[in-house]
């Protein structure tokens, strides 16, 4: 997911009886499907976990602009260029909505940005993989956005109001992203020999990294249990991964492409696919900053931030001068 391995601060989920009145009222409201709004009382752990989660999600959108941005200037037609540009622009918008949601919890966007740039905060592992051919634009939309939607749709019902509202807006925009990706894959899979080869190669490279997006199994994680009690995590990682595989395998078959997993098999009794786990050592390597593009991504973000400083300062200084002149004139 765009938010991976978020550590909640709880030591285990408290029962209602163990809670002080404030916390109990808070938890009962969540249990009843109510929303928590910025000015409501909330446990410190809830606030901090949400900042981490929403911040990481926002960072993922922003860093996620880079692998697709890599192809905007090489898009093969004017329409494809416009579509891709609109999609990457949406990601900037999603990042913006999410930063704003995080800001309601008392942290500034600048602070979150500094924490991303210093490496203190993370973004999704998936964006540390390179986009090497035009088919990757298809694979990213189809697989990466497809996996993200699995998580984002249920998050529209998350307990924190500003986060839920951001997710509603994001999901509405996100649906076109996955479809445009699949549309590219269809063109490639039904195209020339070279295009088919690119499509298969893209699936080969993005399949396991997409499965990793859901994070390692969290069945026994106290953090996940607490987040689920708070309704800021709606499903277990395994549950979503299974759902993703079950949805995606038939789509790959439709494209005439082969999922790179020799153990992939339909299980009639279970009504779902059996599949191989991704290489979790690779996942942890990527999280440690050893992804194929980790260094490039952070350099690109840092460069944009540093080179933009004079612009942000310049426009702010002008606004202040303007205000001062207006005051002096009154």
């Amino acid at each position: 997911m765009y938010a991976q391995m978020i550590k909640s601060t709880g030591k285990g989920v408290k029962s209602l009886d163990e809670m002080e009145p404030d916390e109990r009222a808070f938890q009962e409201r969540i249990n009843a499907g109510g929303k928590i709004e910025p000015k409501d009382w909330m446990p410190d752990g809830y606030r901090k976990t949400l900042i981490r989660q929403i911040g990481q999600h926002a960072h993922s959108e922003i860093v996620g602009q880079l692998p697709e941005g890599n192809w905007i200037t090489r898009a093969p037609t004017l329409e494809r260029k416009a579509i891709l540009l609109a999609k990457v622009q949406d990601e900037a918008g999603h990042g913006l909505y999410l930063y704003c949601a995080a800001e309601t919890l008392g942290v500034s966007r600048d602070q979150l940005t500094r924490d991303l740039l210093s490496g203190k905060m993370k973004y999704s592992s998936i964006f540390n993989y390179p986009t090497l051919t035009w088919a990757d634009m298809g694979a990213v939309g189809w697989l990466v956005d497809g996996a993200a939607i699995m998580n984002q749709v249920p998050l529209q019902r998350t307990s924190y109001g500003p986060y839920a509202r951001a997710m509603v807006r994001i999901c509405k925009e996100e649906s076109f992203h996955q479809r445009q990706g699949f549309d590219i894959m269809m063109k490639m899979a039904n195209g020339t020999e070279a295009q088919r080869k690119m499509a298969q190669d893209a699936l080969n490279r993005f399949w396991y990294p997409s499965l990793m997006m859901f994070g390692p199994s969290d069945e026994n994680s106290v953090h996940s249990a607490q987040s689920m009690a708070w309704k800021i995590k709606m499903n277990s990682n395994d549950e979503l991964r299974q759902k993703f595989v079950d949805q995606t395998v038939p789509q790959a078959e439709y494209l005439g492409l082969t999922v790179p997993d020799e153990h992939l098999k339909w299980n009639e009794d279970r009504g779902s696919y059996e599949f191989s786990e991704p290489d979790w050592d690779e996942f942890f390597d990527v999280l440690q900053g050893n992804g194929p593009c980790s260094v490039d991504r952070m350099e690109a973000r840092n460069k944009a931030w540093d080179e933009g400083r004079w612009v942000r300062e310049g426009l702010l200084a002008h606004a202040e001068k303007k205000r001062a002149r207006k005051m002096a004139a009154e």
Binding site: L66, I72, L78, E79, Y99, A300, K303, G308
Partner: peptide, 29 residues
């Protein structure tokens, strides 16, 4: 203008620049 996508000085400018680029690409067509 589309070369700026993802690396503008601030998110709001990033989005605005993309809109300009999209308009220009539309006009080109």
């Amino acid at each position: 203008v589309s070369e700026w996508c993802g690396v503008a000085p601030v998110l709001e400018e990033d989005i605005a620049l993309a809109n300009t680029a999209l308009d220009l690409i539309g006009q080109t067509t």
